[in-house]
Design a protein around this nucleic acid. Structure first.
Lengths: 275, 275
DNA sequence: ATGCCTTACGTTATACGTAATTATT
DNA sequence: AATAATTACGTATAACGTAAGGCAT
């Protein structure tokens, strides 16, 4: 049977012009390479070289064989790469969400249930998430409204309520609730990935957001300062650390969102495991 | 390095469902096949089977691998077939002609000069021959008129003059020439492949042609009968055998043709060898 | 109990390297 | 002389078969 090493040998010869040079590059003795090429010719039933006793040069058929062999080898490496990628995709659970906090919760739950599988998380708007779920880019998504589509499963997952975490001595710390606008021109701490909350800053453009991209840093800043911090029922325990902040809920309509968990019908087992 | 036998082993397993059955079909022991598959998995770095100690079934990745492997193996066999075909085409000199007799002469000349190369001959009308020469279907063609085209070489090759071979006692045997029409309603022997002569019969539709497809048979019939035989300066020695026929040239305009030899510019060496 | 897969071990076959041979530059 | 390819021969590695073991139906 024709084998791939033989094809790679042929290609090496075409690259190095002489069998000797090719053999060296292959860490092979010259006789071994000669025989390998002879076997290849016998296998194919065609002569690939013009042999002049002292020199073996590729003939016309050999030149075509080199091109073909290169094609075959590329096809094989492509195949291997595709398989590895496919296997990786099968073993990773990719989730998409329109808000960071519920995604963290979901990721934590999945990590606990499937400790040996990789997780990939992504933020996006609900519409592109649904598209991604249908396309197979995501196995689970968290949306900001229920999704009713044939072939998709959907149920309420959690609710997130934004609040402002104030130091106990802040003038508004005893309020039952407040609107963002009431904070005036204050500087507030906030986390970078907003997702579905990305329109919140527009509610009070005068606010000066001190955006943090690292949760630990944000937590430290909260503890080390008396700056108000935009937080929520889901993020409080992460952002506020051991500080004794008072959480005052925001009464703006946009400050409360219900998240829905969606999966493909074919993934019902996974979906129901999370209920 | 990944090898093609391993891919064929994988395909065999997918066909026979169990490793044992596949091993038998491959004339291999079960353990040998098991190890071959293990090597394949190790090579690819992905698991292709769900192993239940007692049973090994292809998993999702394995199913995709089977499809890919099939593709690779097909590509390889295609490659081999193409190479063999290419080699065959390179080693055969294919000639086309618009008339059989000069083609026989040319073929004989080539066979003498290239005793180890195969010849393929084909009759056709001049236009399709030129097209074939440009396409690479022919290396040499014989046309009934000179061809002037950039990239093509052309020169006069030979002339053919039709005649009627009559027995010495035939009333017209002493004529210097005659027209087909003058033969009236006679029966005449003729060879099948007419090529450029195919319009000759129309010159005298009353003639009854006893068409022969075998040259030896035609020759025997000429010797055994007194029937006139349509022949030419080029075919006389083949068709008339040792009979003492008198050849009377045909004076019809269509009964004389000059043949031209054409080749591609890239084949100048071959072309000039024949001058 | 039978079928199927895997591991272990001794053997074989295939491809390798070394050395010798021949031809070409 | 030097380089390059092929042939010959002994060797080594890698894949094989047999045998043994374990799990499941």
């Amino acid at each position: 049977m024709l084998e791939l090493v033989q094809l790679s040998h042929l290609i090496a010869v075409s690259k190095h012009s002489t069998i000797s040079a090719a053999a060296e590059s292959l860490h092979l003795s010259q006789p071994a390479l000669t025989r390998s090429l002879q076997r290849l010719e016998a296998e194919l039933g065609v002569a690939l070289f013009d042999r002049k006793r002292n020199r073996a040069v590729l003939n016309e058929v050999g030149a075509m064989a080199v091109a073909q062999a290169q094609g075959v080898l590329n096809a094989v490496t492509d195949m291997a790469a595709e398989l590895r990628q496919y296997a990786a995709r099968l073993s990773t659970i990719s989730i998409g969400s329109c808000g960071p906090a519920p995604m963290w919760d979901l990721a934590a739950e999945l990590a606990e249930r499937f400790p040996d599988r990789a997780l990939s998380t992504e933020l996006g708007d609900t519409e592109s998430l649904i598209e991604g779920l249908n396309r197979g880019s995501y196995r689970l998504i968290l949306t900001d409204h229920p999704v009713e589509q044939p072939g998709l499963l959907c149920r309420k997952y959690t609710q997130e309520q934004l609040c402002v975490a104030l130091p106990p001595d802040h003038p508004m710390s005893s309020r039952a609730s407040l609107r963002l606008e009431e904070l005036g021109e204050a500087s507030v701490l906030a986390y970078r990935d907003l997702g579905v909350w990305k329109h919140i800053p527009e509610k009070n453009p005068r606010l000066h957001y001190l955006v943090q991209s690292d949760r630990a840093t944000l937590s430290e800043l909260v503890e080390a300062s008396s700056l108000p911090c935009i937080s929520s029922n889901l993020t409080a325990f992460r952002f506020l650390g051991r500080s004794n902040r008072v959480r005052v809920p925001l009464s703006d309509a946009e400050a409360s969102v219900t998240f829905y968990l969606c999966a493909r019908e074919s993934d019902r087992a996974l979906f129901e495991l999370l209920c």
